[in-house]
């Protein structure tokens, strides 16, 4: 059989295959999709002081998350977690957050943000090297192709957050 006649047959097969595939096609999971899911899920394991209200999950710095992912995650957890994502651009607004994600782009401002939030009830999460020594409570790390997290138990306890023991069990504890 020649290549040309093969191509004709291939085209027909391809068309058939694509037509029968006919499912809704959307994004595959990336590292940051998974990190967004972590941020949202942390809300179930932490209690904030004061009356319950919708939680503010803040992204400070260059936003690495896809809007479509965030929307899809919020929708999936709608009954269980009452939260919204916010993107503050000024340091002063960070105290209004419940969960704060410090993006890699703001590594230089880590110190400032952490001093500002000293012992405030804000769960500070990041995903950089030495995230914990720099003052974050939770650092997202990759281990054997899976996303894991480490908790700085001292800074977490110093804040007025009630962190569930279940979360501590899942985390790598760093003293």
């Amino acid at each position: 059989m020649t290549c040309v006649s093969a191509i004709k047959k291939i085209t027909v097969w391809l068309l058939l295959l694509v037509l029968t595939a006919g499912a809704v096609l959307a994004d595959a999971v990336t590292e940051y999709d998974l990190k967004a899911a972590y941020l949202l899920n942390f809300a179930s394991y932490v209690e904030w002081p004061g009356p319950p209200k919708p939680l503010a999950i803040c992204i400070y710095g260059d936003n690495p998350f896809k809007a479509a992912t965030i929307a899809s995650l919020l929708k999936a957890k709608a009954g269980q977690i009452d939260a919204g994502f916010k993107y503050p651009s000024q340091l002063e607004h960070l105290a209004d957050c419940n969960i704060l994600y410090l993006a890699q782009s703001e590594q230089e401002n880590f110190g400032k943000a952490i001093t500002l939030l000293h012992n405030a009830p804000v769960l500070i999460v990041t995903d950089v090297q030495d995230g914990l020594p720099q003052g974050a409570m939770i650092n997202l790390i990759t281990e054997s192709n899976r996303l894991r997290f480490e908790i700085n138990i001292n800074t977490a306890l110093a804040s007025k957050l009630k962190i569930s023991s279940k979360l501590l069990k899942l985390a790598k504890i760093v003293q």
């Binding site: 959307a26 994004d27 595959a28 999971v29 590292e31 999709d33 998974l34 899911a37 972590y38 899920n41 942390f42 179930s44 394991y45 479509a68 992912t69 899809s72 995650l73 929708k75 999936a76 957890k77 990759t142 192709n145 899976r146 996303l147 894991r148 979360l167 899942l170």
Partner: peptide
């Protein structure tokens, strides 16, 4: 089969920790 964004929305933290990343 590959994990989907809709899938991870429904997962709890423990399940998320088992999702594999491509490295």
């Amino acid at each position: 089969f590959a994990t989907e964004v809709d899938d991870i929305g429904k997962m709890d933290l423990e399940q998320l920790m088992n999702v594999e990343l491509e490295t």
